[in-house]
């Protein structure tokens, strides 16, 4: 079942940059699927939520390449799913590592676009060849960067586990962090400040009283 993650990594990379456009590569979906396959669903999903909100504000408008939040979710969920014992401390530690590594992972998209450009300049009229080569490159990027990166980081964390003291962080801290990110994200949404607070309190009251 775990081997399924290798082709999935390729497909997620394609969905993110070159094919489908079905949002199967969103951090939320990626983290939930890995959590479902490998275990520790709720922790994987919690990380997916945080990366999803960060990713939602980062729109690929025009030539802009948004940061590869799919990679962050993949790495985070894979590592968390493979920890022998999941603690909030290691979740938090992995969250930071995944967030930092998003930047080199995003550069791999820049690199694949550069390869596509070179291929196009060499033979601009071989459209079928260019399209399917591009798909293969995107698939390979997913397998190498997502799956390869996740396994490598998982080994590193396993190696460090005995030597590292990770400070105590509560689950509550993650929830507060989610609130902060949600607030930041809501700045991106169109509504007056008063209306935002009123709707937020209404939503909270609805969940508290009814659900």
């Amino acid at each position: 079942m775990e081997l399924l993650l290798i082709p999935l990594a390729g497909l997620w990379s394609m969905d993110r940059s070159t094919a489908f456009n079905f949002m199967i590569s969103r951090p939320l979906v990626v983290a939930a699927v890995i959590g479902g396959i490998s275990g520790n669903f709720i922790w994987c999903f919690a990380g997916g939520i945080l990366f999803e909100i960060i990713g939602l504000m980062d729109m690929p408008v025009g030539t802009r390449i948004s940061r590869d939040s799919t990679f962050a979710a993949f790495v985070f969920a894979y590592v968390i799913a493979h920890l022998p014992v999941v603690t909030t401390e290691y979740c938090f530690f992995t969250l930071i590592i995944a967030y930092v590594l998003v930047f080199p992972a995003t550069y791999s998209i820049v690199f694949t676009r550069w390869i596509n450009k070179k291929l196009y300049q060499r033979s601009p009229h071989r459209e079928s060849f260019l399209i399917w080569t591009g798909q293969a490159i995107a698939f390979a990027r997913g397998v190498i960067v997502y799956a390869g990166g996740a396994v490598l980081i998982s080994w590193l964390i396993e190696y460090a586990a005995g030597r590292l003291i990770v400070p105590s962080v509560s689950f509550l801290w993650l929830v507060i962090f989610f609130c902060f990110l949600a607030g930041y994200f809501s700045g991106f949404l169109t509504a007056s400040m008063r209306l935002k607070i009123a709707l937020l309190l209404l939503g909270g009251a609805f969940a508290w009283l009814i659900l």
């Binding site: 929830v175 989610f178 709707l199």
Partner: peptide, 18 residues
């Protein structure tokens, strides 16, 4: 606006989990 309403419900759920 619907998204902000759902965020409110999610915060309550998060606090319940914690």
């Amino acid at each position: 606006k619907v998204s902000i309403f759902i965020i409110g419900a999610l915060i309550v759920k998060g606090l319940e989990y914690s």
